[in-house]
Design a protein around this nucleic acid. Sequence first.
DNA 1: ACCCTTAAACTAGCGGTGTAAGTTTTGCCG
DNA 2: CGGCAAAACTTACACCGCTAGTTTAAGGGT
Lengths: 218, 218
Amino acid sequence: MPRPRQPRLTRQLIVDTATALIDAEGLPGFSTRRLAAELGVRGPSLYNHFATKDEILDAVADTVTGAVDTSGFASRDWVAALRDWAWSYRRALTAHPNIVPYLAQGPGRRPAALAMADAVYGGLVRAGWPPARATHIGAALRYFVAGSALGSFARGFVEDPELYAAHYPHLRDAHRLAEHQQSVDEGAFALGLDALLHGLTAEYARTAGPVESARPSG
Amino acid sequence: MPRPRQPRLTRQLIVDTATALIDAEGLPGFSTRRLAAELGVRGPSLYNHFATKDEILDAVADTVTGAVDTSGFASRDWVAALRDWAWSYRRALTAHPNIVPYLAQGPGRRPAALAMADAVYGGLVRAGWPPARATHIGAALRYFVAGSALGSFARGFVEDPELYAAHYPHLRDAHRLAEHQQSVDEGAFALGLDALLHGLTAEYARTAGPVESARPSG
DNA sequence: ACCCTTAAACTAGCGGTGTAAGTTTTGCCG
DNA sequence: CGGCAAAACTTACACCGCTAGTTTAAGGGT
């Protein structure tokens, strides 16, 4: 078949369909041939629009990351900004959990991830954190959010009571976790985030300060 | 070739070789044929010892998790125990970073991961944390450790200054992160862990208490 | 109005993957 | 010592990412 009157594929259409496919069938079920079939097309046609499969995945990941809101760093104090950002970040990832293992490996060349890192780092430095500390804080929060979206604690447990009862006495009711999965994960996230921010606030009082009153000695 | 005088393969030998191969070439470079070649064998022979490739990966992941030390929960206060565990957990994962994306998806049916979860949960409950809180704390710490081992913040940046300078003003020196990768990641982990534990200590003072003096209400 | 370049689909095919099926020979147990 | 299970093998299937070359339509230049 030759070139059609109207192009059947667009980068945008490919990315949207890929996102839906990954959401529906997971990363292992996502192949270029399968994606092409979903688009009514023949596989290699995708390579007219993307150079590699990873480039498609990067575009999907970038779209997901693009939904994260970092506007708090422009308008609120750093603790509130971090909290808003972390929750927004988490919501963006849990909306498409299957892409997280790919996405979590690093910002790489994805512009949205870089813009996010830039906004967080800039906001923290503006709030008076030393640059090295700002990097650490951004990384630590990213660890926590990515980990929470990736390894849903509850989802990992198998629904087979027998498996646990025998050998792991404290986990006797672990299979019930699957029922409360969302609430367990959200509760753990809320607790951990609050604890993190609490600890950072204490650290801030000890070592950092507003930009206009730079600390006198190193 | 028929059955040999002495079996050439053992589950243990397969797991060890698989671990080394994954360490050396990463998850994408790990295939059953490649592993078999490394063992001087023909590919399908592995299926005499493991049912699927994932079962091999589970065994590798379980061995890695088995190196995590949870003994602190038996001998130290809960804060020190959590700290020791988190660092041990992190060391175990960063020793084999390439398996982490697979491992981080959940404990599943891997006994070492389940034993670890059991020890942490039990230790926290013994220390006076309400069961639901103990679950949340274990999960939160796991998020943080898995996230830090998975998405090394520094490793994710590309070594191309131009890429950042143009569009992300605050990340102008991001490419330098690659040079200090280990120190950035460890610093971020140390900061985040301390903050988490600080926040949990405050929460403990507010809501929990030793088992022998159970709170009177709610 | 025509040519020519480029775009966007196609088909064919390469080397690789996980794994199922069936074969062969050995070691061990009754 | 007969027979069965174990552990290697070969063959093969369906799928994978991706390359190469083909075909035809779209669109810009003269």
